[in-house]
Amino acid sequence: MPKVIDDVLGGRLRSRGGKVSLSGSRSAAVARRSPLKTVVKGRYRTLSSKGPNPARGRASGVMRNIDYMTTRPDSSRQRISRDMILPDRTINLQSDPESRKAIEDELTNAKEKYIYHLILSSGDKTMSPRDVELWAKAVLQAQGLDKYYMVIHAGEQGHTSHPHAHVIVRTDARLGKEDFFNMRRAGDVEQRFDRRLFRLLEEDWKQRSTEKPASSGVGLREVDADEEERGKRRGIDIQLD
């Protein structure tokens, strides 16, 4: 079965892979009007009815994606081994073949209808691998996506100037245009909150180091507003390279 790619409006394009072009389309016009900086790309696989073991076939296809994510050459074109981050642990598939087999079996036995390959980027080129990990986890959590396999491409493990996370997500629901928009929005809210919190902590440290009185708390109310906004987040947006 051909892979199905979603654009930012949730439209379906049948393809063997590649980018979803937004130029000259309604999607492009929407993207130009959008103030959001977070980028979310992706495509999904469904369970084909063909073949002697469709579930094993789908799992094998996803594992090829995972192998690419974990071993893609870095910016110096050196092939490296990246860790895979799961909700409850971190593993290295190249050095731990038993874990790799366990992941493939898990994907084979997965009951979810859709398996998405997402790429999440905040647009902040200064983010470290740990920054990207925490940010991406927060975005996924906001959408209620708790079955994922994540690989970070950032810092010395990156291959572009844009830190990002590759994520394989299992879900029963097909992600629509509202989900995609909400995920981008959640990513921006997360970034604003982190920047404001860092600024307030920095200001507090300066005040303490000079023995000045504590601030009135106005800035903290600003962070509280973003924290409230973080609690309302729900969704996603898609393309693919």
Rank of each mutant, 00 (worst) to 15 (best):
R192C: 01
A154G: 08
L175P: 00
G11L: 14
S209V: 14
V20S: 03
G51D: 09
N109K: 15
A102G: 03
R100L: 06
R45Q: 09
A214L: 14
P2H: 04
G57L: 06
I80Y: 02
G231I: 01
A225W: 07
R100S: 07
H159N: 09
R33A: 15
R192G: 00
R185S: 05
V151M: 10
Y116K: 01
D74L: 06
Y44M: 02
E222F: 08
R221N: 13
K177H: 14
S121W: 00
D6I: 01
R230G: 01
E106R: 13
G219E: 09
T126F: 07
K147V: 05
T160C: 01
S49W: 10
T71Y: 03
F180N: 04
I168S: 02
A29Y: 08
A165G: 02
A59S: 15
S122K: 04
W205H: 11
R208N: 08
R26W: 06
T46V: 14
D226V: 15
V30C: 03
G219A: 05
G18Y: 01
S99N: 14
P129Y: 12
V169N: 05
M69L: 15
V8P: 10
M1S: 09
P52E: 14
N53M: 00
K113N: 08
Q191V: 10
R58T: 10
E133M: 07
A214W: 10
L22H: 13
D241P: 08
I236Y: 08
K113C: 05
L36Q: 13
R208I: 05
R196N: 13
A102F: 02
V39R: 13
M84Q: 06
N109C: 02
G217S: 11
K19Q: 07
I66R: 02
Y149D: 02
R43I: 01
R16N: 09
I119G: 04
E133Q: 14
Y68N: 05
R72Q: 12
R77P: 00
L201G: 00
R43N: 06
D188F: 06
D172K: 08
D83I: 00
I238E: 07
D88C: 05
T171W: 03
E211P: 00
R12N: 10
I152H: 12
F180I: 09
K41T: 08
I236C: 06
R234Y: 14
Q207T: 12
T160E: 08
H164K: 05
R14V: 03
R130L: 13
I103L: 13
S21L: 08
H159V: 01
T90E: 14
R199T: 12
A173M: 09
E227N: 10
L13I: 15
A138W: 00
R100W: 10
H164R: 05
D88Q: 11
R56E: 15
T71E: 05
Q141M: 05
R195C: 02
P2I: 01
K125M: 07
S21E: 10
L22W: 11
D131N: 14
A102V: 00
S81W: 06
R77L: 13
Q239M: 06
K206G: 06
L86Y: 04
S216Y: 07
K37Y: 06
R12P: 00
G11Q: 15
L107T: 09
L86G: 02
R77H: 06
S75G: 01
R174A: 11
V39T: 12
E203Y: 04
R32W: 09
P213D: 12
T126C: 00
I5M: 12
R233S: 12
M63Q: 03
